[in-house]
């Protein structure tokens, strides 16, 4: 029996330059199935660049990135089969209902579910039943993100990429979101989350990485560090 968990996300010497300016410098990341890796750092530290590279929305200047061993550049469509992505502000089709949005995106991924199944996923993602058929334009930000989670669940995604998903959510919605992440963790989903929320990172994350000016300057396990230590660590790196 092989006890070592599978590597879900892996980057090797990943570099991204914009017009000669370094946005991401030599990133080596390895995230296992079931991990929740929280990327911390000031704006412009390279968090979003990392996520965009993993989704192949931008091409790396050099280096490689893999999702379950699949090269995200060379085999982009294959690598996306296992990916789910929720940006800071998840925009959906306003004129369609929540359930129609879910059905559409699943259809694009080649998946077809019955209405009951779709509703079950929405319920699991924590969306209240009476909102399923409402147009998305009436949804709050938290409700839209639940559609994103439902999509990840229905797609059976193995890797979840989150770009500041909890910013702008009220504490209750933020707490619900964390619970959903924990549930996905139980399904062995690997999560990479860029965030500014140190508290949430400590509460939810298994790993913490601090980025500064394109460099991953510190990596640590959350269980080994307290709230105050984390804050101090963060500030030390950012102020240096």
């Amino acid at each position: 029996m092989n006890e070592t968990p599978q590597i879900a996300i892996k980057t090797q010497n990943l570099i991204k330059e914009y017009d000669g300016k370094l946005a991401l410098n030599d990133l080596n990341l390895s995230i296992n199935a079931g991990d929740i890796f929280c990327l911390l750092g000031a704006n412009g530290a390279g968090k979003t660049t990392t996520i965009n590279l993993l989704m192949n929305f931008i091409k790396p200047t050099s280096g490689e990135a893999f999702i379950y061993g699949v090269d995200v550049v060379k085999n982009s469509r294959e690598s996306k089969k296992h990916l789910a992505y929720i940006p800071e502000n998840l925009v959906l089709y306003n004129e369609l209902s929540g359930i129609e949005n879910l059905e559409y995106f699943l259809g694009l991924a080649g998946l077809k579910y019955s209405k009951d199944d779709l509703e079950a996923y929405l319920t699991e993602a924590g969306l209240q039943n009476d909102a399923f058929g409402n147009r998305v334009k009436t949804y709050s930000k938290g409700m839209r993100q639940k559609i994103g989670i439902a999509l990840a669940l229905a797609k059976n995604a193995k890797v979840l990429l989150l770009d500041e998903p909890t910013s702008g959510l009220d504490p209750k919605a933020s707490n619900e979101f964390s619970k959903l992440l924990m549930r996905l963790k139980n399904y062995n989903v690997a999560t990479l989350m860029a965030t500014h929320d140190l508290f949430r990172a400590k509460e939810t994350g298994t790993h913490i990485g601090i980025m500064k000016a394109g460099n991953l300057v510190n990596q640590t396990l959350t269980e080994k560090i307290s709230h105050s230590e984390l804050e101090e660590l963060y500030l030390t790196h950012i102020n240096n």
């Binding site: 989704m55 996306k80 089969k81 990916l83 992505y85 959906l92 995106f105 694009l108 991924a109 080649g110």
Partner: peptide, 8 residues
Amino acid sequence: RLVKMQGV
């Protein structure tokens, strides 16, 4: 982006 994420 979300569309592209589904492998379209």
